[in-house]
Amino acid sequence: MGMPNRKYADGEVVMGRWPGSVLYYEVQVTSYDDASHLYTVKYKDGTELALKESDIRLQS
């Protein structure tokens, strides 16, 4: 078993793309699913969504 190939840690605050949009919002990573390679993130309004790594970026 190798290390999970994840870029962002639980609790890390990053920018997540809103689905169907080009806009990124501040989100907190809450979990990562090794099987689906999706991150569960929480937006400031409390919305929780699963995002692909390509829809997440570090805060500038």
Rank of each mutant, 00 (worst) to 15 (best):
M15Y: 12
L23E: 13
L23W: 11
G11A: 04
S21C: 07
Y24T: 02
P19C: 05
S36N: 11
G11F: 06
A9R: 11
T47I: 09
Y24N: 02
Y39T: 01
L38H: 07
Q59N: 13
D34T: 11
E12Q: 15
A50E: 14
D34R: 06
K44Q: 10
Y39Q: 01
S21R: 06
L58C: 11
T30I: 15
V29A: 00
D55S: 06
R6N: 04
R57K: 14
S60I: 13
P4E: 10
S54G: 11
D10L: 08
S21V: 04
K42R: 13
L49V: 11
H37W: 06
K52M: 12
M3K: 14
T40Y: 12
Y32R: 01
V41T: 02
S21E: 07
V27R: 00
S60D: 15
S21K: 08
V22Q: 14
Y39I: 02
G20T: 04
S36L: 11
L58R: 15
E48Q: 11
D45V: 02
G11I: 02
H37N: 13
R6Q: 09
Q28W: 09
D45F: 04
T47W: 07
E48G: 03
Q59G: 11
A9C: 07
G20V: 02
V22F: 13
V41L: 05
R6M: 02
L38M: 13
Y39W: 02
A9Q: 15
S31I: 02
R6H: 06
V14H: 02
L38S: 07
E26K: 09
S60F: 13
V41P: 01
E12H: 04
Y24F: 12
T30G: 04
G20S: 06
E26D: 05
Q28S: 09
R57P: 02
L49P: 00
S36D: 07
V27C: 15
N5H: 08
M1C: 13
D45A: 02
K44F: 11
N5Y: 10
S21A: 06
T30D: 05
S31T: 07
D45Y: 03
Y43A: 14
Q59P: 15
D55Q: 07
Y25L: 11
D55N: 05
K44S: 10
I56F: 03
S36T: 14
T40I: 13
G20Q: 07
W18E: 05
D10F: 04
D55F: 04
Y25G: 04
M15V: 05
T40W: 12
L23P: 03
A35W: 11
D33V: 03
Y8H: 04
R17Y: 03
A35V: 15
S54L: 07
L49W: 15
D34S: 13
G2Q: 11
V41G: 02
Y8A: 02
Y25C: 10
G11H: 05
V41A: 05
K52V: 08
K44D: 06
K7T: 08
S21Q: 10
V14F: 02
V29K: 00
K44I: 10
R6T: 03
M15D: 05
G16R: 01
E48M: 14
V13R: 09
S31F: 08
S60T: 14
G16N: 01
G16C: 12
P19F: 05
Q59D: 11
G46C: 06
H37R: 13
L23Y: 12
R57Y: 12
L58M: 13
L38G: 02
G11L: 05
L49N: 04
M15C: 14
A50M: 14
E53Q: 05
K44P: 11
M1R: 00
P19V: 03
Y8M: 00
Y43T: 15
R17D: 01
G46A: 04
L51N: 00
R6A: 04
S60Y: 12
T47D: 03
V29M: 01
G46T: 05
L51Y: 02
S31Q: 07
Y43N: 07
Y8W: 09
D34E: 13
Q28R: 11
V41E: 00
G2S: 08
S36F: 08
E26L: 12
H37T: 09
T47M: 08
D34P: 13
V41F: 01
V27K: 00
M3R: 15
S31L: 04
Q59A: 14
H37E: 15
S21N: 06
Q59Y: 14
L51G: 00
S36H: 09
V14R: 01
R17C: 04
A50Y: 15
Q59E: 11
M15A: 06
V27W: 03
A50Q: 15
D55T: 02
K42L: 12
P4R: 02
S31N: 11
D55C: 05
D33N: 10
K7Y: 05
V13F: 14
Y39H: 01
L38P: 00
G2H: 11
M15E: 10
V13M: 14
W18A: 09
E53V: 05
V13D: 04
R57D: 06
D10M: 06
V29G: 00
P19D: 04
V27S: 03
M15Q: 09
E26T: 10
D10S: 06
V22Y: 12
D33C: 06
L49S: 07
W18I: 09
N5P: 15
S36V: 07
G20R: 03
L51E: 00
E48V: 14
M1T: 15
V22T: 15
W18P: 11
N5C: 10
L23I: 14
G11K: 04
T47K: 08
R6P: 05
Y32K: 00
L38Q: 08
G11D: 04
V29R: 00
Y25E: 08
Y8K: 00
A9M: 12
K52A: 13
K52R: 13
G2P: 14
G20A: 05
A9T: 08
S54Y: 08
K42E: 06
Q28D: 02
N5D: 13
Y43S: 10
M15N: 05
G46V: 04
L58V: 14
S60V: 13
P4D: 10
T40N: 09
L23G: 09
N5Q: 12
S54P: 05
Y25K: 10
L51C: 04
M15P: 01
E26G: 02
Y24V: 03
M15L: 13
V41W: 00
A50N: 14
A50S: 14
E26V: 12
S31A: 13
W18L: 09
T47P: 05
V41H: 01
G11W: 05
A50K: 15
K52P: 14
S60W: 11
S36C: 07
Y24M: 06
